[in-house]
Amino acid sequence: MTSILKNRLFWPAAILVVLLAVNVFTSNQFITIRDGHLFGTLIDILRGSAPLILVALGMTLVIATGGIDLSVGSVMAISGAVACLLISDLGDQNAVGPVLLIIAASIGISVLFGLWNGALVAIVGIQPIIATLILMVAGRGVAQLITDGQIINVQSGPYATIASGFLLAVPVAFLIAVAAVALIVLLTRRTALGLLLESVGGSPTASRLAGIGAKRITVMVYMVAGGFAGLAGLIYSANIKSADSISAGNLIELDAILAVVIGGTALIGGRFSIAGTVLGAILIQTLGVTVVAVGVPAQATLLFKAIVVVALCLSQSPAFREKVFGRLKPRPALRAEVAQ
């Protein structure tokens, strides 16, 4: 029992369970089947959390190298803008082939923006927070240039599918997120990338002297983060069927960083946890949904969110846990440790 309690992800998981339980009681439909696919608050949460999961995945890898990527929100806006602009120029917006091609192109462009970030960090040697701040600020401007300051609306069935469609009764957006998680897990744990990443984040100097091409790995990680942010931007824009370069991905970098931290990856780099990040992202999304569901007044939602986050962070702080739980029952805890 204590080993479960001691697990870093215990408290985030517990809070998630509590929040979901609250939703079971407050929402009239938590999970049900309607028109042949799943429906309800839980499904809304899963679908809604897809963009954040995608962004947070990339952020996890970046943070593992000891970096940070503030530009993910802007990259979302750019990719949505590019996709919507190109789709709106299509003769037949419902043609599947061209739309897929456009999606691929938008992601490709996002990867290039990631390359830009990575180059600034690894090759030019600018501090990650500053290097990505450049694109964070400039990127939104680029997105507005692409859309010419307008909101571009699209009427494309295939495009809308990636946000609101269902495959085998499950939301496509969530499936995309699951696929992305699987891809990243394979990429980091089935190859040596995870080890080398953690090494670079743990000690860049020692890694260099061990012959690790830290620069190439760093650049690659920012490219992955860019690509995933681009994909998140497509889901966002497909959901509202338009490119909104002002609010797409606005402040999502902060939620993503929070998700990574809740998941147990330290901001100084090194060890990272994909499972933790996914849990963190879903938790943040659930929190947002719950706040609305329980009827917290709109002006108090941010404060409510802040309180939960503070509680969460405290529950994960070893010093705080020691103070609170250590004093309550030091003896049994000690004995249990010996028993292990």
Partner: peptide, 16 residues
């Protein structure tokens, strides 16, 4: 500072 990666395990440090 230039040798071990403290967070990583003995195994990971050896094969690095």
């Amino acid at each position: 500072t230039e040798g071990i990666i403290g967070d990583l395990s003995v195994r990971e440090n050896i094969i690095l």
